[in-house]
Design a binder for these strands. Structure first.
Lengths: 310, 310
DNA sequence: TTGTATGCGTTATCAG
DNA sequence: CTGATAACGCATACAA
């Protein structure tokens, strides 16, 4: 790799002039500029990013820590984030983590001058205490300030309206075991029912953990009738689909399913179930704004999803 | 962030000694070592990785370019790669690419001193000419040297044996439109049939591009009977499943499906279809060996998958 | 408009 | 065993 010294020698100017031409660019005689440009072209010179990082402040790298438990979501987030990143000449350093320790590990190994900022995505486990420049996306306990989360209550309520308007009045919520998200979903679910003057039946709220399909089977075994099903993500939807198929219940004729966290881009999902989908591009944009500091005053950000009919 | 200067001041030794204690570590008086360790601990000092990169040669970063068309596969590769990387204290810089231009873009933006090496994953499109330190994994045209690919012929042949041994003798191959992989698959498919003295029927080789389900429908419309189906990946399998379900053909009773590129970790695939699965950990290990140069002499590497019954 | 000198944080060389 | 000092490649304040 050619360095700035090579260029300066070949162009017969100083390193400073080379640097000026290729970055600052103002206050350089046209003759010099041309010489530099020509030399740089001839040597195929590209400034070394590591040296730039050391000299300047920013490295242009952002660490992204993905919770493995929500890989399905990561598949959607990652391309959206990366697109924004590369648009702004930033690099995405990827790590996966299974638990709080894994997150700590990742934060540590990336946080030694390599990254300007960190993003944690989809962690459903309690997080360790973290610095101010860590952004939380779709994490269970988002401790205020730098976090982007989804309005799950809104999603559940919307889903209820949708199903009820389609003639389903016995709605089952296959919820998370606990956590902020679970509570929000339950709250939205109850509001949705209330709005339509439907009674809240505790039997119809099942726990997807540890197994959505087992939960569904238990529900069926209990004899509780239902004709609408709210699941937390497309993977759960697929599981439910299989179980219901095995029990001879057709979807959506006998029973309608809606996913509370959709994923447009996931191929292979031929039968199009209705879902609440979140604008990933917007999400990525906001995340980048937080990193660059444009949104620093905004505090926590809550995004509402769109209902996408099947 | 504390620097080596802060530590050296606090420990009343020179920067050189601090550096020695924290890396080389040999030939330091114990008293000095303790002083350095204590100071470093007090200041929570961690060597700046960027400075280390500039001083030394390696940055410890590896660029990974994922073809978006095979996101499903990426979901499997990425965690396996990242695990190996972090085990060896390497960082994974992620980029996505849609086409050759995207790849070129990514190579360019990461190849300015930031990355020690590059990996391209799952590109089914023709690649631009690339440097020697670029490793190709599961790419369509793997130009010799640094590439890891799958033995698709072996996979197709194994799949045929499996299906035929399960009483299916009318096997359809839903193949790629063209490319090396397609040819290999076809070759293995034919060998599998030959071995069992079954005739090769051109009607039973369909093209999954642009749409697997359309291809399958055409096949069904044509009236060609079949009771076994080889698809190239789980996504295609799911599509096929839907189409066949719509046509009232039950799987695996009336017809068996096998995926030639499996994915264990993908949740939500409740009904377990048989598949050829590739050992991702081993793949990642080999990739890392190539990067670190342990495998440099090996040339192109071909990996065979395991049959995993449904 | 241009060149010189300095700093960014480490590692490595080389005297002492 | 240890401490100056020189790289690494670039940006920039300052001087000319």
């Amino acid at each position: 790799m050619a360095t700035i010294n090579d260029v300066s020698r070949l162009a017969r100017v100083s390193k400073a002039t080379v640097s000026r031409v290729l970055s600052g660019s103002r206050g350089v005689r046209d003759e010099s500029r041309q010489a530099v440009l020509k030399a740089a072209g001839a040597l195929n010179y590209q400034p070394n990013q590591v040296a730039q990082s050391l000299s300047g402040q920013s490295t242009g790298c952002v660490g992204v820590i993905c919770a493995m438990e929500s890989m399905q979501l990561a598949v959607n987030y990652l391309p959206a984030l990366e697109k924004q990143f590369s648009r702004h000449n930033k690099h995405l350093l990827l790590r996966f983590a299974d638990d709080a320790m894994g997150v700590e590990d990742a934060l540590f190994s990336m946080g030694r001058g390599l990254c300007d900022a960190m993003i944690i995505i989809g962690a459903r486990f309690p997080l360790p205490s973290l610095d101010k420049d860590v952004i939380l996306i779709d994490c269970l306990d988002a401790p205020g300030e730098n976090s982007i989360s989804f309005d799950h209550a809104f999603a559940a309520e919307t889903a209820c309206h949708y199903l009820i308007n389609h003639g389903r009045r016995q709605l089952v919520l296959l919820n998370y075991a606990d956590g902020e998200t679970a509570e929000q979903l339950l709250q939205g679910y109850r509001r949705g029912l209330e709005y339509h003057l439907l009674p809240y039946n505790r039997q119809r709220v099942a726990c997807r953990d540890p197994s959505p399909s087992v939960a569904l089977q238990s529900l069926i075994n209990s004899g509780t009738p239902f004709n609408g099903l709210l699941v937390v993500n497309p993977a759960d939807a697929r599981e439910a689909l299989s179980v219901l198929h095995a029990f001879g219940r057709s979807v959506p004729d006998s029973l309608a399913i809606i996913s509370l966290e959709g994923s447009t881009s996931l191929p292979g999902s031929l039968l199009p179930l209705p879902a609440i989908e979140y604008p990933l591009e917007k999400l990525a944009e906001k995340a980048l704004d937080m990193i660059t500091g444009k949104l620093q005053d905004g505090g926590p950000l809550v995004i509402r999803g769109n209902l996408v009919a099947g």
